[in-house]
């Protein structure tokens, strides 16, 4: 069996339990003072990479996490990855650019090709924009197989088998040979906590940094979609409790429903 060289792309997102607040200019969300954390689905992908490493013979798996973003705190997320046991990490500083999934996939394509990875494990979607496209587009650009929405992953020689959760029909069992892209679904595993003693050890470790502008100058990161405007969802009016059937009928007539 060939060596498994896993890349886990991780995104820093607004904590999913917090309510996003639009900024005054309505161009994005407020970020100041809000808790940001690793995209939960990426955390699951990361956990799976760590589990694969411990399940397979020693020395046959390498793991690398990469985060693309402009915020310095991407490095904290990557330090957490190191503390959890990922071998190596890279931060791609995206500077002033706002990147859509296609651009991210293109950047990742270059990173994957240069780094000679043969398995990309990532979340099925990021919970901030909910696009759910990066994994599939990356597989397309690389011309690799893709196994999406995995709720279980097993590796046997050069084959990867996943159970894929689908709407309606029963779970699908998919198999492909390396190299391939696997996207992680919620039920794949429960991520471990960051162990503090290991985090302390990597606290001062410099994080490898690449610059989008310099190191990915050939990648076309042009946005294909324009965001016209951002708006809060319309608040649903709360219901009322009527006292009697007569009142109900009166109200229904009043609002011309009957």
């Amino acid at each position: 069996m060939s060596k498994l060289r896993i890349l886990v792309p991780v995104k820093r997102v607004l904590d999913y339990q917090l309510k996003p607040v639009l900024n005054a200019a309505r161009t994005g969300i407020e970020t100041q003072g809000f808790k940001f954390s690793i995209n939960p689905f990426d955390d699951i992908a990361l956990e799976e990479a760590l589990k694969l490493e411990s399940a397979l013979p020693k020395g046959t798996v390498t793991t690398h996490a990469v985060s693309i973003g402009s915020n310095l705190q991407c490095r904290d997320i990557l330090r957490n990855c190191l503390a959890k046991g990922i071998h190596d990490v890279t931060w791609i500083n995206s500077g002033k650019y706002d990147l859509q999934p296609l651009a991210i996939a293109k950047i990742l394509k270059q990173f994957v090709t240069q780094g000679d990875y043969n398995l990309v494990l990532l979340g099925k979607q990021a919970i901030d924009d909910d696009s759910g496209q990066t994994g599939q587009m990356l597989a397309g650009l690389l011309n690799w197989s893709q196994l999406t929405n995995a709720s279980s992953v097993t590796v046997e020689s050069d084959n990867i088998t996943v159970t894929s959760e689908t709407d309606g029909i029963q779970d699908q069992v998919l198999r492909a040979s390396l190299p391939c892209v696997v996207t992680a679904d919620l039920r794949l595993n429960t991520p471990r906590y960051v162990p503090l003693p290991k985090l302390m050890k990597v606290k001062r470790k410099p994080i490898k940094e690449l610059s989008l502008e310099k190191d990915f100058s050939n990648v076309d990161i042009q946005s294909r979609l324009n965001i016209v405007s951002l708006n809060e969802p319309v608040v649903k009016k709360s219901g009322i409790v009527v006292g009697s059937v007569d009142e109900l009928i009166a109200k229904l007539k009043e609002s011309k429903v009957i």
Binding site: Y16, Q17, P195, L196
Partner: peptide
Amino acid sequence: EDVMGDETVIDGTMAQDVT
């Protein structure tokens, strides 16, 4: 850093998100 530095605290974790 302080309590782990001198090993008063021997293991631990810090919650990364609200969950």
